[in-house]
Design a protein around this nucleic acid. Structure first.
Lengths: 355, 355
DNA sequence: TTGAAAGCGCTAACAA
DNA sequence: TTGTTAGCGCTTTCAA
């Protein structure tokens, strides 16, 4: 009475039901069961009745496919690796959410990990993801050198770079026009009458978008005949605290040539910067004007509301998934390289209004 | 000359190197290679020299273990499933980050997914995670009924519930004392002199912490002899927009018995609520006082700063990983049920000061 | 000190 | 219309 034992096993959850369990219980082959359960019954021409019986038995025995086994067999895990500097940052959290949704629509899952802007950590993450046999990678990289990326290319790992990309690499990428965003905000500040504009960068210095934003700032100054003053430019290392920000701001605002405006190059900097400025009891924009790269919902609720560069994170996420899927489903390789550059939106608000 | 071919394969990335490739190239057995690569060489007593040669060959051939295969074989994926309502919500994004870090320290990876507060979506997520053979689950559940949880128990799936837990279930859980948080904030409002206190809940109504917060609110009112007025209590469905919030608030503030204060039961509600209130050109706290369940960094930067209940997300995440690891490593089952209840912190700020 | 062989659960080429 | 067989890459038992 093998049936009894099998049922018991299944019902008591002592052990998971496998394909062969079903096959054995029904006296058919694993192949048949596999075919039916994968919806290929009709295609192959398995009797309707048999199909129904298989389905019923699978249900009865509480069958659950083992996706590790399937992945091993078909050589594809249906997992996407998502590498981010920090998933707790709202910008990346939103991206993670949309990537998850978009990938899910195509039967893919995502495994994400945060690099904290550290090259070594990121290398370890990528290694781990590859060991776990992810089918493709979406990378907001913190890598200092592009060699690692090159080796991904050589190994023919499908991947898309987002937010950040080494300019001279021939790879899929979805980025925002960082130069334009920073240029426009700086120009806006200049047009509002500010000339001494401080720039607060996030470190490490090799992050491409930060370099481009810096360049946008420089170019705007130059085109408006304002001399570049490197006492007005600071780099704050990732993982900074309020103290570090306090020192930087105090320094930048110090007379006689102190900044009249501060442009923070990401949302973390802006939030901490605003805290420090409040603690210093300074009025915005009277004592110092404020602009932010990255917009948060709440920036518009502050008093005064903070001028910001909004990034289209939804589109970044969607495009990255679209491209990686195209790559994964491509019949022919290599697929033509896609380099998407999205425009940022400048949200001019009261924090940059000359009073 | 098999060596040549093998090297070629490895170096050109035509095909990944496997254990048997290394074994074959060296003329030894897979067993040996596996043992050495897993650091069990000494333990088993493999010659130092052989070990060195294996290690070198592995490196030379660019070996990467296939974790799907290992997982299949050892019956453990070293993956934790993390189920959240929405990873884009800062509260959950922070939790995800810390869970990722803590699990990583123990060699586990996490696969997360968002349920959007939908029971059906969550069931599908759990099913998917189990099919992917996660070793354990951390659940901030959106499930309406506890049956699904019960069946996890019956199937002996290791899991920990966080943030939300069905009260009469004997399961591991890490939650915040929601009743206390809401009670104290409500009491604070009352002590500041507000009597008509509106409550803005997030739907769906079965979310346990929301029910408890609601109860905390009720109890505080009762203990201060303030009658409960259900016109002052609204539920806004998850995924709401500004319009919905606008209607609710307009309604609650309407004379003659309009609310003098509003207590929002999560950070999303607070942010949108503040937007609406600003658009209505109301002064906080003169026209209406504001309190929030969930604190965000920026709440302290608003003018006025917003009174909030801060939740210890770092501890929630750490504890949940600690417990699931204890469960996974336990020699004996069942492990004693852990029910951690963390205290929230009330941050009293100017938004609730009677002017 | 090392190797042979089995098998985790699945799919797929080929046979019948 | 269904079954046989092989094998994905790994670990592990047992033997030598």
């Amino acid at each position: 009475m093998p049936d009894f034992i099998l049922y018991n096993v299944a019902f008591l959850g002592m052990k998971k039901t496998s394909l062969s369990d079903i096959a054995r219980a029904m006296g058919v082959s694993k192949t048949l069961v596999s075919l039916v359960l994968n919806g290929r019954g009709d295609e192959v021409g398995i009797k309707k009745d048999t199909q129904k019986r298989v389905l019923e038995m699978a249900k009865k025995m509480n069958y659950m496919p083992n996706l590790l086994a399937r992945g091993l067999r078909i050589g594809s895990s249906r997992i996407l690796g998502l590498v981010l500097p920090n998933i707790a940052n709202p910008f990346f959290a939103h991206i993670a959410r949309v990537v998850e949704d978009e990938a899910g629509k195509q039967g893919y899952r995502v495994m994400s990990a945060s690099s904290d802007e550290e090259s070594e950590k990121e290398k370890a993450i990528i290694k781990m993801l590859l060991e776990r046999q992810v089918d493709g990678l979406i990378l907001a990289t913190s890598l200092k050198e592009k060699e690692e990326i090159r080796s991904l290319q050589e190994e023919k790992i499908p991947f898309v770079m987002i937010d950040r990309c080494f300019p001279d690499l021939q790879v899929h990428s979805v980025v925002v026009d960082n130069h334009a965003g920073a240029y426009k905000v700086t120009e806006h500040l200049i047009e509002e009458g500010f000339r001494k504009i401080g720039l607060v960068k996030i470190g490490p210095s090799h992050i491409t978008p930060i370099q481009l934003r810096h360049k946008g700032y420089c170019d705007a100054l130059r085109n408006h005949n304002i001399p570049y003053d490197d006492r007005l430019v600071r780099e704050i290392p990732f993982g900074f605290d309020e103290q570090v920000m306090w020192e930087a701001i105090t320094d930048m605002l110090a007379p006689p040539d102190g900044a009249e405006a501060l442009f923070f190059l990401n949302n973390d900097l802006t939030v901490t910067g605003l805290k420090v400025i409040r603690d210093m009891q300074l009025q915005i924009p009277r004592d110092v004007a404020i602009a932010s790269y990255d917009d948060l919902d709440v920036f518009n609720l502050l008093c005064p509301p903070v001028t910001a560069v909004a990034q289209p994170w939804k589109i970044i996420a969607r495009e990255s998934v679209r491209i990686i899927m195209k790559e994964l489903n491509a019949k022919k390789h290599p697929v033509e390289t896609e380099r998407v550059v999205l425009p940022p939106t400048i949200r001019k608000r009261a924090s940059t209004r000359k009073s």
